[in-house]
């Protein structure tokens, strides 16, 4: 495993730890989009379907279990925890899952590598992951008060796929020269969606100001 890949995975893991920390320590999920979190559950469930069928490494299986477990745990907190669920911005988190899930699924049916069950779901998970942050970004735009943990959570979550892009470039030159359009383009779009957020996050960090996104 190269350094970009490891850094990407660790950034992803750290973002989740940070979010769970925020929820557990402050007993609040204010500013967090349940829509985005539910989309991540769908992403992980459709991508890691092969978890018990094919084994690659202990690291790999462990990370998959962690991503599946934590994403479901976060959704549980936001939906069912008696204190946390009351802090959820129900009225502002208005993005409809359906408008992301359906087009991604149709696209996976049309654009894929092999027409098999596992392959279609894997492709669907990449398409869906690339846009899953949209409800969260829309919610942040509506929020006048974005706390540090939420801002940093979104920043790390965006940085993770960006680091994967470097990992793919690295692997392209060191392992085998084969073009993998589906993950590359999805990852590129995923990272590009964060561009605006990155700009405002870094600017607020440099100026030591509170993060605010223009509506």
């Amino acid at each position: 495993m190269n350094a970009f890949r490891l850094a990407g995975d660790m950034t992803h893991l750290l973002s989740i730890i940070l979010l769970l920390l925020k929820i557990r320590a402050t007993k609040s999920c204010a500013g967090i989009s349940l829509k985005t979190q539910e989309l991540y559950v769908i992403v992980f469930m459709s991508r890691y379907l092969d978890l018990f069928r094919t084994y690659y490494s202990l690291y790999n299986s462990l990370m998959k279990i962690i991503f599946l477990g934590t994403s479901m745990c976060i959704v549980w907190y936001m939906r069912s925890h008696k204190v946390v669920r009351q802090t959820y911005n129900n009225d502002e988190d208005t993005f409809r899952h359906f408008f992301l899930v359906l087009p991604c699924f149709v696209l996976a049916l049309l654009v894929h590598r092999n027409f098999t069950f596992i392959e279609i779901l894997w492709t669907f998970s990449l398409y869906l992951e690339s846009v899953a942050i949209l409800p969260q970004l829309v919610l942040l735009q509506k929020s006048s008060n974005i706390d540090n943990l939420t801002g940093t959570y979104v920043f790390l979550l965006g940085a993770y796929r960006g680091l994967y892009l470097f990992n793919w470039v690295y692997r392209f030159f060191t392992e085998n020269h084969r073009v993998r359009w589906i993950p590359w383009l999805s990852g590129l779009i995923q990272t590009a969606i964060y561009t605006d957020f990155f700009y405002y996050y870094i600017r607020s960090w440099k100026n030591r100001e509170k993060l605010k996104l223009p509506a």
Partner: peptide
């Protein structure tokens, strides 16, 4: 090959 990437990436 293709499958190797798919299995070892997250």
């Amino acid at each position: 090959s293709h499958d190797k990437f798919k299995k070892d990436e997250l």
